[in-house]
Amino acid sequence: MKQVLCAGIVVLDRIYALDTLPQGEAKYTASAYRESGGGIAGTAAVAVARLGGQGLYLGAMGNDAAGDWLQAELRQLGVGLEALQIIEGGRTPNACALVAPDGTRCLIVDRGTIAPQIPPHLPQADALLVDHRFPDLSAALLKAANVPSVLDAEGGEPATLRALAALADYPVFSSHGLRACTGEDDPHLALAAIDAPKARAVAVTRGAEGSFWRIDGTIHHIPTPRIEARDTTGCGDVFHGALALALAEGEPVRAAARFATAAAALKACNGGGWRGMPAREEVEALRAGGW
């Protein structure tokens, strides 16, 4: 079982199902409501555990009700918490997700009042995944890493993303993050504009369009399978966690990208937050079937 250290943010998600996403000032009635764990690093760690690896979470929570709930949920889902930091009097991040029937969503995030410290000692791991939320922590971990390192460059300040991308083996941007860093919408031009001297590959995820990868100066496209999305919340986080696990297991980058694509697609079909993570056998069956 390979271990993936996932460092960054974890969030308590409050999710409302709506017939349509809000379009201006009005009152909307939800058809369903649930609570789930979320956040880039936290969700990635859960995905790793569900996919047959050992997800280790490094980050912080407050000693509040949201933090207590998230700790219990992570433990039940098999995530290691030996690197978790509890901040006395801190407010754990939380989010409100509004989800339409086609799986599209609107996300409102309260980042909380906590920030993890750089730990003096790190758990042993076979791969590292960091997000952009705590850049000093992410930069320190990337500099110290001697295992494959994945950066989830979903958002944040462009200068910060560019600096972190220069430290990672596999910087993987969202469309928004890459556009903010380069000013380009075309994935070929945008990926070519990223300066990542350490990177073995640089990528951008584009939802239903799949992902694009710059490997040895050549752009490769990994398409997504045809699916009926139920909820896309957390799919990018699942993608990054699955990618890190596949790299830890020694998969070549394009094979790892297909594994991550299959995992994210099945998560979109399942919905259900952390409890809707696909199992390893489901992902392998989809990947083996091709698309």
Results as ranks from 00 to 15, higher is better:
A199V: 06
A166I: 06
T113G: 09
C181E: 01
G155I: 00
L128R: 05
A165I: 06
T218V: 15
L189N: 12
A139M: 07
G210H: 02
A125P: 03
C106R: 14
E154Y: 11
H188Q: 15
A127Y: 08
A201I: 05
V202H: 06
G177C: 06
P120C: 10
D126Y: 05
D152C: 14
L137N: 05
A163K: 14
G156H: 07
L128V: 01
S175G: 13
A139R: 06
T218P: 00
P120F: 09
Y170C: 07
L129G: 06
S138A: 15
G210L: 06
I114K: 07
Q124N: 06
D152W: 12
P116C: 11
V130F: 11
P171C: 14
D110Q: 13
D110H: 15
K198I: 03
L191H: 02
L141F: 12
I215S: 08
L164H: 02
A140H: 13
T182P: 00
L128I: 00
A196W: 01
A168C: 09
L164W: 05
A127H: 05
D131L: 11
C106D: 08
D110A: 14
A180L: 13
G177K: 03
A199K: 01
R214C: 05
V130D: 07
A208M: 10
E154T: 13
A168E: 07
A163Q: 15
E209K: 12
V150A: 11
R179E: 09
T205F: 01
P171Q: 14
S211F: 05
R200G: 15
D136C: 04
E157P: 06
A190S: 03
A127C: 04
L142S: 01
V202C: 13
A180R: 10
D169N: 13
A140R: 07
F173C: 04
L129Y: 04
P171F: 15
A125L: 02
D186S: 10
T160S: 15
L129P: 04
H121M: 10
G112D: 01
E184Q: 15
V150G: 08
D216K: 13
